[in-house]
Write a protein that binds this DNA or RNA. Structure first.
Length: 701
DNA sequence: GAGCACTGC
């Protein structure tokens, strides 16, 4: 503590720091406990602590500071506290620090509240979807980046905050990218705002350039480097490219297990199926190929694994043995497993790509970036020096891998982003200062879609409907459908369907019980459409008191259903707030399901397929030959269907399909089904016939 | 007749 006072005197910028030798907590008025001082000791040993004065001086003198620090530097917990102590918080404004993931926001807030010895939710809190643990006393809050973006929609200057910290900016999530675009302007107009960008090593210069560059208002943006605290990881490459990375990976695991000292192994693969297969192989092969193998436990790890199975990777390894964890990218950023000493990196992951030409997002196994490879290697050095075996050549690493993964904004359908930006008052999207501007075609597709949905008028201005749509945390098609559903007397039902469509698939199909699972699903199936099947499942879940056992017996994913129920409540709250009535058609009425299907058409008229005489479906307008996804529950092949998703795997499939009538397309989406501008084909001829049929009775009237 | 990288609102 003596050291501290000395440095306070030495640095004039710290003149109004609170007296750090005080024994009374200024927030609670209570004397500090022993634990407080223990934590303080740990905090002062963090690498970031040595940079505190330098950091605060930079903040004092600049509006924007880029702080670069690797894992273990302590930046996420300490930097917001530096700003707090420093008194950067002015006029009752708050400090907010964003995180890409909810768990991080929660756990860091918890940690910091302990370090400051205040109850979580009072001076220090967090805000994530479904949960706002903050209060009137809150001066520091952690929030997901998406949540701060939502806040910006009602407070475009983010005027509640005196300091905004964007953490993990190098991950370049959609929300962080949009926030950066907004804040670049806000920070130039608000004199009472400090912006801190925190990032891992790569790309730091890019953030600096981006925030400083402006023809009218250039800024000096200093960069501060903080060393991380990790152990060295030795990297090995293969001398020749591997033909089969799975075989190579299995071989490497076996070699490590046979020859290397104890320490857990982490193998990165691309997906569930590959992981389960590899786990099986390892359990078979290790006893066969290793003489008297040390004890080992093979553990799969991916997001759709039930939480208790995920937790197993944190259990201690078998006595005198090791854990072999076979994981997706989840182990690259979301979950950190201490005790990993060996990382095996084949160099691939599944990545989302968006093709604006066919308007399709799909997942593709692709080579990872250098940044990812480094991040993966770092996972071996958490507790002691480690080794990373890259199953590609050094040449490949240096010459072929991209520096960083393309930011999400370049790989996504931007309909939702465009709606958000419009709501934020950004009129000229084409000239919006994105750090990485998306392809013009992607923006055009998004504008076009929003125009067809009626969210934007022909001048590109947000309509009343568009403003309502932006209130919902949903894709535009879903929010449109929800907003019009009261007109079809089925908002209660559409609310349930939208919730079910917003969560991971609830149907389980374990490989050893596929027939039973299919039989269970058949009991919920509605033959007119999968959307209606989802409604049945949701009803059944509620009627069975949301019972996890009932879910288990019926091969339903309890987590998904619970989450759907949460989403539904949130959406219901928004419907009430926006004065959208919650109504149903009498279940006995023949119109109960008809009305629901009509509402579906109102949101998804652009995702319609027509049954051709060939027996295949053709999507309207873009004429893609598609098949019904084998998971569908229709008992016949309807002439017209709406679909929720276009999936590109071994074939082109449409998934979650419901039968509709061609008349409805003409009735509710005449602007889109304008036959004068419709591509020739069977679909058009069918619609023309319907037009004639509709005209005749009118003439008689 | 097949799948579901990972987040987030």
């Amino acid at each position: 503590m003596t050291d501290d006072r000395k440095s306070d005197r030495a640095n004039p910028y710290l003149a109004h720091l609170q007296n750090s030798s005080s024994t009374v907590n200024k927030y609670t008025g209570k004397p500090y406990s022993e634990r407080y001082y223990e934590l303080l000791k740990v905090r002062r040993a963090l690498p970031i602590y040595e940079k505190r004065d330098e950091f605060l001086k930079l903040v004092e003198e600049n509006k924007v500071v880029v702080l670069v620090g690797d894992t273990g530097s302590g930046k996420t917990t300490q930097v917001p506290q530096f700003l707090l102590e420093y008194g950067i918080r002015e006029k009752n404004k708050m400090i907010v620090c964003t995180q890409p993931r909810r768990v991080a926001a929660m756990s860091v807030a918890q940690r910091v509240s302990e370090e400051l010895e205040v109850p979580l939710g009072e001076q220090v809190g967090y805000t994530i979807r479904f949960e706002d643990v903050t209060g009137p006393k809150t001066i520091l809050k952690y929030a997901t980046d998406g949540m701060l973006l939502r806040e910006a929609m009602s407070d475009p200057q983010l005027s509640r905050y005196s300091s905004i910290i964007l953490d993990e900016a190098h991950e370049r999530t959609l929300a962080t990218d949009i926030l950066m675009g907004l804040l670049k302007t806000i920070v130039r107009t608000r004199d009472d705002l400090k912006l801190i960008i925190m990032s891992a090593t790569l790309d730091a210069g890019k953030f600096q350039d981006y925030f400083s560059r402006d023809p009218e208002y250039p800024l000096t943006v200093p960069l501060l480097n903080v060393p991380g605290r990790v152990y060295p990881v030795e990297v090995y490459y293969t001398p020749e490219p591997e033909k089969d990375y799975l075989e190579a990976a299995i071989r490497t695991v076996i070699q490590i297990h046979a020859n290397e000292p104890l320490g857990d192994i982490l193998l990165f693969l691309t997906g569930e199926e590959e992981i389960e297969e590899t786990c099986k192989r390892l359990n078979q092969d290790i006893p066969l190929l290793v003489k008297e193998p040390k004890p080992f436990r093979v553990l799969p790890l991916y997001s759709s694994l039930p939480p208790n199975a995920q937790q197993r990777v944190f259990e201690p390894p078998p006595t005198n043995g090791r854990k072999i964890i076979v994981a997706t990218n989840i182990a690259e950023t979301s979950l950190t497993i201490d005790g990993v000493v060996y990382v095996i990196d084949p160099g691939f992951s599944k990545q989302k790509i968006y093709d604006p030409r066919v308007r399709v997002e799909s997942l593709l196994v692709s080579p990872i970036s250098k940044a990812s490879a480094k991040q993966r290697a770092g996972r071996a050095g958490r507790t002691r020096p480690g080794k990373c075996f890259r199953l590609f050549t050094e040449q490949t690493f240096k010459k072929d891998l991209l520096e960083t993964t393309y930011p999400e904004i370049l790989r996504s359908n931007l309909a939702n982003v465009v709606l958000t930006l419009k709501k934020l008052g950004i009129d000229d999207l084409v000239h919006f200062d994105f750090m990485d501007p998306p392809a013009p075609e992607t923006l055009m597709r998004a504008l076009e879609l929003l125009n067809y949905l009626g969210a934007l008028d022909d001048e590109g201005e947000l309509t009343q409907l568009g403003r309502l749509m932006a209130e919902f945390p949903l894709d535009p098609q879903l929010s449109k459908m929800l907003i019009v559903s009261p007109q079809f007397q089925c908002s209660n039902e559409i609310l349930s369907i939208v919730a079910m469509l917003s969560v991971p698939n609830c149907f389980l199909r374990p490989r050893d019980a596929q027939k039973k699972a299919d039989a269970a699903k058949a009991r919920f199936t509605h033959s007119e459409g999968d959307h209606l099947t989802y409604l049945n499942v949701y009803y059944a879940y509620k009627h069975n008191n949301e019972d996890p056992n009932w879910c288990y017996q019926n091969f339903l994913n309890y987590r998904s259903l619970k989450s759907a129920d949460n989403v539904r409540s949130q959406l219901e709250g928004l419907m009430n707030k926006l004065n959208l009535p919650l109504v149903s058609t009498d279940f006995q009425s023949g119109d109960f399901y008809v009305n629901i299907r009509k509402a579906l058409v109102n949101g998804f008229f652009m995702q319609v397929a027509h049954l051709e005489s060939s027996g295949y479906y053709l999507t309207v307008k873009d004429n893609q030959v598609v098949s019904l996804h084998p998971s569908h529950g229709l008992d016949h092949k309807p002439t017209w269907v709406v679909y929720n998703e276009f999936v590109l795997t071994s074939r082109k499939y449409i998934r979650t399909v419901t039968e509709i009538k061609g008349e409805w397309l003409l009735q509710y989406a005449s602007h889109y089904y304008d036959l004068a501008n419709f591509p020739d084909g069977e679909a058009k001829r069918d619609l023309e016939k319907l037009t004639l049929k509709n005209k005749k009775p009118r003439k008689h009237k």
